[in-house]
Design a protein around this nucleic acid. Structure first.
Lengths: 187, 187, 187, 187
DNA sequence: TATGAATGAGCCTTCATTCAT
DNA sequence: GATGAATGAAGGCTCATTCAT
């Protein structure tokens, strides 16, 4: 028997899933609500029972996915810096492979000016947290160098992930091998 | 006295310049032609004398700027691999600092699905060329490793440049220091 | 114990009461069914068990309230014209003070073209009845003057009531004093 | 030869005229922009080159018409109170006959709650001004009575005008005769 | 060449109404 | 009787593009 609230959850999930895929494929501004509705096989107006606006749908999707991601970033505190770095990269690769749709959308979105305003709080918080984590991988005796190393590592991961999700299916990006390359540089 | 063709060049240049700045600031989809016209101080319809459509304006801007960039990427063929890499990074940093508007726009645009179709030929060509150049920086005895190293270097530059143009004015990205960090990793 | 029909009456009454208040406050076209349902604490769809449409709800409310009003307009047939007029004005003032919500809505609605069609029969009947009553207050020897006096009195009451219900709380309309003014004019 | 600015004026006037008529006939909320456009024989989007929104179109229409009206309310300062009152009533009747469309719309609009907010400034100012003018018609020795008399006269005019514009063509409202009735009451 | 008025397709959103539970 | 999820037809508004001058 389907309860009312499970009906609700079903609809909501269908909207989120479809929107995520379409935002990733076409971009946010090129994905009309009508297209989401058509592909999700629901009426146009239904989205507005679950989200107050198209923008709210987007931010909700991002917040939910981000929360999932943050949860899977527990790093072993007792490991050596190099081990931590290795574990971090493994986590990154695992997560980006698992949620490719989301990250494809994310990397397309984070460079859009109007979205930076929309998401500035979430983005800034995540950025600061991540940099702080990455700093623990490097020698704290020279704080400036430590900070710069963290920035660079973040940028590397950024670039690699972007290239991974943007690579066409015909020439996939060898992310596992690239990961090994990175680790080698830090040995 | 202003000749006809210089008038033409003036209007055209003003359109390109204004569009570039606005595309960078607001994003392509959020920049109406009317806004470009207003800020460039020309009539709305005038753009269509120079470019057949808004998309054509964009691709033109990108092609022109890309050509400029390619031209400034001559690498000294006789230098050592490390010297080449250093020179390459210097070029990148110099160019991105000089044309920040363009690169800001470029990095916002390259992840947009609809643009990848629009520019796929140019983008693919540039990508292949660049990777080929970067491969010359690495040991050719293991071609697969060589290729992966080139991919990684490209991704690193990608990530660093993206973070540079996205950094808010309040906390600028220390790109010169980061460049040194990178070079250190390759010594 | 609540019988079935009293439940029915409760829901129905709650809908009518809430709708009346909201129509008065926001206007008919700016009061969604969903808002009535939310404030009346009932389900959206429930209204359609009692009224076939939003328009039907409105006309029902008006008809019911009008009936109440008509009932309280019995004028003493044996009184002098001036006494009749005074009694009539007293009735008007009493009724409008008692059902302020309804009259506030009524005066907002009666000028709306689409409602005039909807209610034209009721409105016309009430209008003719009222004018006929008012005519008994004036000298029948000049029928045209008598009719015009009735029209004028009706208009005066109309204007005074409208201004009363429209007056903001900060500067209430002194309807009792105005009533005395009117009576003085007819002495 | 038609200049550009006269083209502009033509279009604008056509929009205003059509909107005024339709707002009067159907009510503001029941008059879609698309209907205005269709009847004015212009494209839907054109309105937005002249007015930033539908609401702005309405307030503009009201402001313009109100200004016209205010201008025609010069009362002879040296006349006796009764003469002033007579002149005032003559002005009212003349104006309402001339701009019947506008006043039909105006009386339909002024009772709509959401419009009171929209126009509260204009409405309040006009109200205060008018009451102040009307007070000069009455004996200043009892200020409270004077104020109440002004309120009543305003209400009377209000009611008469409303009934005039609402009267169906089949039974027109004899406004000239009613005007005489009113004057008689004040003799 | 240049202007800016005009067009109309398409977008986001609201809301009266229906329907499965 | 009661619920609230789902529908779909408008409505207001934006904007790339065309066209008369």
């Amino acid at each position: 028997m389907e309860t009312k609230s499970s009906v609700r959850e079903n609809s909501r999930a269908k909207i989120v899933e479809t929107a995520l895929e379409l935002f990733a494929r076409n971009g946010y501004d090129r994905t009309p609500i009508s297209m989401i509705a058509r592909i999700a096989n629901i009426a146009q107006g239904l989205m507005y029972r679950y989200f107050p606006s198209k923008e709210a749908l987007l931010t909700e999707i991002i917040k939910e996915s981000m929360a999932d991601v943050q949860a899977s970033f527990d790093v072993n505190k007792d490991a050596s810096p190099l081990e931590k770095l290795e574990e971090y990269l493994n986590n990154v690769v695992r997560i980006i492979k698992t949620n490719r749709h989301f990250w494809s959308m994310f990397y397309a979105l984070r460079t859009q000016p109007f979205l930076q305003e929309l998401l500035s709080d979430e983005l800034a918080e995540m950025y600061v947290n991540t940099i702080a984590t990455l700093e623990t991988f490097f020698d704290p005796r020279d704080p400036e160098a430590q900070h710069n190393e963290a920035l660079l590592l973040f940028s590397i991961v950024d670039g690699v992930c972007t290239n991974y999700v943007l690579a066409p299916e015909s020439t996939p990006y060898p992310i596992e091998e690239i990961k090994e390359c990175i680790i080698n540089k830090y040995r």
